[in-house]
């Protein structure tokens, strides 16, 4: 493993190794406090993303390393017209590993072709966000104990939600998985995703517009936000943003051991009254994001605990 650009770059075995390492870090954080001493992580964020950037920075700091970088394109030389390839060629001389967020799809892949240090895709537009998927997988492992024999409901914006596409791709590689695809008609899962990862693999699935009708079947419920920036038309956004709201009333229909996840930030699709429910796992999920990024940095730097 040299770079991480797309979750499908990782084999199931490599994902298992990362999750195992993350669980070891959670159990014995003291063993990893100096694993990346004298190493530097560059966070090149060409668009703001507080949560992801802080998570990467916290991960590197907890490994004993240090961080440098920028949090928006305006404060980088991109504002002077420098190309991504030139930027990473320069930064490769200053840092041992790069985490890059960029509004253009494919920018981290271009970076990986020109960098002499490992590049991690920290989100490229609406395309890939592999460390979010690793976070989601670690959460499922921690909360459910396994990846197979699970019924997973994906709810909200399944059309533009890249985390949903990647999670389906990753989970489709495990045995006896079933999907409920819960969305309004306008935000259904794109057919190419459905074909590649569900239909072609003969995975059972049900497409529905009603969360209440299926919540009792679910082991995992993955909620997503309807993102304003994905709509050209404000009216459509306003009409669809409140389509699904998870409330304590709906939670009464769910299994006792349901795991409710959300990549965050949420707007109003999960009522804050659900936060105190022990089945609400989304804040734990954000915390797991730091541990899986620690594991990923260790693997890519081939650093020893």
């Amino acid at each position: 493993m040299k770079h991480l650009i797309d979750i499908l770059d990782l084999s199931v075995g490599e994902i298992d190794e990362l999750i195992e390492l993350a669980e070891s870090i959670i159990a014995h954080p003291e063993n990893y406090r100096e694993s990346c001493k004298y190493k530097k992580l560059a966070t090149l964020f060409f668009e703001p993303s507080t949560r992801t950037r802080l998570s990467f920075e916290a991960a590197m700091l907890e490994l004993g390393g240090s961080v440098l970088g920028f949090s928006e394109a305006q404060s980088s030389s991109a504002s002077k017209g420098e190309s991504v390839s030139d930027t990473v060629a320069v930064v490769s001389g200053y840092a041992d590993i790069i985490a890059m967020r960029h509004p253009k799809e494919g920018a981290p892949l271009v970076a990986s072709m020109h960098a002499s240090v490992p590049v991690i895709n920290a989100g490229d537009g609406g395309h890939n966000h592999p460390t979010q998927t690793l976070t989601d997988l670690l959460t499922i492992k921690r909360e459910k104990g396994h990846f197979d024999h699970l019924t997973i409901g994906l709810c909200g914006d399944l059309k533009f939600g890249r985390t949903v596409h990647s999670l389906i791709a990753a989970m489709s590689r495990y045995a006896d998985v079933r999907f409920y695809l819960i969305s309004p008609e306008e935000l259904k899962l794109p057919s190419y995703v459905k074909t590649a990862y569900i239909k072609d693999k003969k995975i059972p699935y049900i497409q529905t517009t009603s969360l209440e009708s299926c919540i009792s079947e679910l082991d995992v419920l993955y909620m997503t936000r309807v993102q304003r920036e994905r709509f050209f038309n404000e009216e459509d956004y306003i009409r669809l943003k409140d389509y699904f709201i998870l409330t304590p009333e709906k939670m009464t229909l769910a299994k006792e051991d349901l795991c409710v996840m959300h990549p965050l930030p949420r707007v109003n699709e999960i009522s804050t009254a659900v936060d105190s429910d022990p089945r609400a796992c989304y804040f734990k999920q954000a915390r797991y994001g730091k541990f899986i990024r620690m594991a990923l940095i260790l693997k890519l730097l081939e650093a020893n605990a």
Binding site: S83, V84, H102, K104, E105, G106, V110, G125, G126
Partner: peptide, 13 residues
Amino acid sequence: KNPRCITTTEQEI
């Protein structure tokens, strides 16, 4: 043809 693709802004790739 994707206007969000990096190929639309990086001239050399």
